[in-house]
C-alpha cells in the first residue's frame, strides 16, 4: 500500500483584488472584510489532484490522508477534501497556531505526520497562496530527515520511488528518489477535478480526527510567538503613487493613435 498525506491550507480567496484588501494597523494582520470568501489554497487543491492521479494509476492500494493546521474549528476544508474520497483526515486545530510561522507550522505538521505513521509520500503546495513563502514542504522534509522534490508539474510513484517533473526557471528536470519523500506541487499540474454532487453530499457526513498541539506531544512554548524565528515588524499595503491617465477617443483608431503617440513621446517604443 502507498500512503499519501496531503497537507492543505484554508486561506482568504487569492482572487480578491488588491484594492479590496486592507491591513489592520493594530494587530498587523489582514483586516476582516465582510463577505471575504475563504477557500483551499489552489496549490493544495492541485496536491489532491496529484494524489488522485497516483491512486488511479497505481497497481496497488493507495490511501490518501488529508492534513490541515488551523485555529478555526469551523473551516470547511475537510468537507472539500472528503468530497474527493480521501480515506482519512487529521485536523491540527489549536488557538496556539495563531502566530505560527513557516518554522513552527512545518514542525507541527512534521510531528503530526510522525504520529499518523507509515507515511510514504507527503504532498504540499509549492507555496500557500496567502503567504507565498514556499517553505513548509522543505521544513517537513528537513524535520523528518527525508528527501524533498520541489515544484512538481507531474508526480508518479513507481517501484517504491517517486518521480517528478520539476519546473525550473528556464526548463524542467526529471527527479527521482526512494520513498518516503516530500513533493511540493506546482500549478502546472493543472486544475483539480470537481467532485460530483453525490460525493459532496457524502463528504458532509465525514469528520476528521481533531488533534490539539498537546495531542501530538507539543507544548505552547514550542509553537507560540516565543518560538517564532522571524518577527513581523510591520505590514502595509504599498501606496500606488500615481493615477492612471485614461486615453479617450471616438473610434478605436483615435484611441490607438493617441496611445502610440503617447508611448513614442515617452520613448518606450520605436
Amino acid at each position: 500500500m502507498i500512503h499519501i498525506v496531503v497537507c492543505a491550507k484554508w486561506i482568504p480567496d487569492p482572487e480578491v483584488t488588491a484594492t479590496e484588501f486592507k491591513i489592520d494597523p493594530e494587530s498587523l494582520r489582514r483586516a476582516e472584510i465582510a463577505g471575504l470568501a475563504l477557500v483551499m489554497s489552489p496549490y493544495d487543491e492541485q496536491c489532491f489532484e496529484a494524489a488522485l492521479r497516483i491512486r488511479e494509476q497505481a497497481d496497488e492500494e493507495v490511501k490518501i490522508t488529508a492534513l490541515c493546521l488551523d485555529t478555526d474549528p469551523m473551516i470547511k476544508l475537510f468537507r472539500q477534501a472528503f468530497s474527493w474520497d480521501v480515506e482519512a483526515g487529521f485536523f491540527l486545530c489549536d488557538p496556539v497556531f495563531e502566530d505560527s510561522d513557516g518554522y513552527t507550522t512545518s514542525f507541527a505538521l512534521g510531528t503530526a505526520i510522525q504520529k499518523i505513521g507509515d507515511v510514504d509520500l507527503i504532498l504540499t503546495g509549492r507555496q500557500a497562496a496567502d503567504g507565498d513563502e514556499g517553505m513548509v514542504g522543505f521544513g517537513i522534509a528537513e524535520h523528518l530527515g527525508i528527501p524533498v522534490l520541489p515544484c512538481a508539474a507531474e508526480v508518479k510513484v513507481q517501484d517504491g520511488s517517486v518521480i517528478i517533473e520539476r519546473v525550473l526557471d528556464n526548463g524542467f528536470e526529471t527527479l527521482e528518489t526512494p520513498l518516503p519523500a516530500v513533493v511540493t506541487v506546482s500549478n502546472e499540474i493543472g486544475e483539480a477535478r470537481r467532485p460530483s454532487m453525490r460525493q459532496v453530499m457524502r463528504a458532509a457526513r465525514q469528520k476528521p480526527t481533531v488533534w490539539s498541539a498537546e495531542d501530538i506531544g507539543l507544548d505552547a512554548a514550542q509553537l507560540d510567538t516565543s518560538a517564532m524565528r522571524l518577527t513581523v515588524e510591520d505590514i502595509f499595503v504599498p501606496k500606488v503613487d500615481h493615477s492612471c491617465e485614461f486615453i479617450t477617443g471616438e473610434t478605436p483608431g483615435d484611441l490607438a493613435e493617441a496611445l502610440v503617440g503617447k508611448l513614442r513621446e515617452l520613448r518606450v517604443i520605436p
Binding site: 484588501f21 489582514r30 507565498d132 524565528r229 518577527t231 515588524e233 502595509f236 499595503v237
Partner: peptide, 20 residues
C-alpha cells in the same frame, strides 16, 4: 537588519527582523 517582502499574494508588504 530589516527585510521587506511581498505577502498576501503580493497585495501587502511585510517588514521582518530575525531572532538569530
Amino acid at each position: 537588519l530589516l527585510l521587506t517582502r511581498p505577502c498576501y499574494g503580493g497585495r501587502a508588504r511585510a517588514v521582518v527582523s530575525f531572532r538569530s
